[in-house]
Design a protein around this nucleic acid. Structure first.
Lengths: 249, 249
DNA sequence: CGCGCTGTTGAAACTTGTCAAAGTTTGTGG
DNA sequence: CCACAAACTTTGACAAGTTTCAACAGCGCG
């Protein structure tokens, strides 16, 4: 990626204006803000954090102070039940906000781990709430983001509650594809950042079932899959299976 | 219920101060507000709406203007997939807010129907957002409510994604029991306001499986069930099955 | 009184999970 | 550089849990 080598020449002065120069600003918190409001938001987002693949950004019960916006990279969040059972609650791409479920209790409700080398913007929540008074657009947009999270979760509940294994996996791939597209990447070429086990856990299936479904999709010419590299060869058919659900996140 | 006959002598003057006199105010939006702030909230919540059993409060794609707080009664919300598949996304008791998933798109994302005669307070969202500037406590609390909704959904995802039929139903009953308790009702006596089919749909099971599980619980002395009247006779065992999850909503 | 809705129960069928084995890739240390 | 271990993936056979199909009972209602 050319972006990586270019990153080396970014100066401190540029870093201070993080949002203004961020490639995913139109997907993220600053969406729709004008220049002045963007500058005000930048004043409170003055810290970034690098999270190497495999490291946790936060864990359940950690004290909640900040939301995190993913600048680059890929995360998964997961909950632990009291018996140690694990449930993957989401996979998160650049431009998405993490930690929204922690506001209610001042402690993180789930665990967040980087699946690849990632960088996040740290957004102190107290300061953000104060900023809402000065920047009503920002407040409105924040409410929309939280609401969208709820709506997204409801769609996943639909997936888990009503769909077969085949439909679940199709729905998962369509969703990934759409989110890639929204970021300007190819809708067909997906690099799965997670294992079969993590996909299965997320979809309420076993890793073996996921593997079998992938093989089935490949036999039917829907995808070409080779470990974690996947090419969608018949997106329409996948959509059909997924229930056409326009699940753009 | 004695409350019902008493309601008849409430005067217009009292109605204007809805929240101040509401029995569930400590579970609802006004939680933790002082007298003055409560009065300000009351100025924007000046409409109540009676919803008879079986009637819809809103439907998916309806224009979003207001949130609804349940004053009395019981609702279910459900989503429809493109093929007409239905997924019950929640059951809602007095003191709970509905419509939070609609903020993101200015249109309701799901359908809400009263399962018994109910009354809701209409909360114009535009006015609520404006009020946040004057009443920071209210804003903080609203964010917590939205966040709690997200956390609650994640728990349901855990239920749907990892639990057996038995565990799901146990978890469902424990959750209902805890919510009743929070409202000062008995933790053991539940009147299920919904059919087996609706429970099953919510939990990702068929109505037959739900029925069988109820029978099984009864045989093992965990509950006594007779149509929609249910008494929990061994809450500890149910909790055990549910994974002890303290799922207070 | 009969009809419809809801709930219960049984038997068979099917999807998915479980267990097991083997192949592949990646990383590590000699 | 090679050997080996560890993690991940695929595939098969079988078991189990849940759904599907079907019949019937109870309750409420016109």
């Amino acid at each position: 990626m050319p972006t990586q080598s270019r990153a080396k020449v970014i100066r401190i002065a540029d870093l201070k204006h993080a949002c203004s120069s961020c490639s995913v600003r139109e997907l993220c918190l600053p969406m729709g803000l004008d220049h002045d409001d963007l500058a005000r938001l930048d004043t409170i987002i003055n810290r970034r954090q690098y999270v190497p693949a495999g490291q946790h950004l936060y864990r359940a019960r950690d004290r909640f102070q900040s939301l995190y916006a993913i600048r680059t990279g890929f995360f998964k969040t997961y909950d632990l039940s009291n018996e140690g059972g694990e449930q993957v609650s989401g996979f998160h791409m650049n431009g998405e906000l993490m930690g929204l479920d922690a506001i209610s209790s001042d402690a993180h409700a789930c665990n967040a781990v980087a699946l690849e080398n990632s960088e996040v913007c740290v957004i102190p929540f107290d300061q953000l709430e104060e900023l809402f008074h000065e920047v009503p657009m920002l407040q409105k947009h924040f409410h929309k983001i939280m609401s969208r999270e709820i709506a997204t979760d409801h769609r996943l509940m639909m997936v888990l509650g009503t769909m077969t294994a085949e439909e679940r996996l199709a729905s998962f791939l369509v969703n990934l594809s759409e989110r890639q597209t929204a970021r300007g990447y190819s809708p067909a070429i997906l690099r799965l950042g997670m294992s079969r086990e993590e996909i299965g856990n997320y979809l309420g299936l076993t890793l073996e079932t996921v593997s079998r479904m992938f093989s089935g999709f490949q036999e039917n010419g829907l995808v070409q899959v080779e470990r974690r590299n996947l090419a969608i060869t018949n997106l329409a058919a996948l959509r059909q299976l997924a229930g056409c659900a326009g699940t753009t996140r």
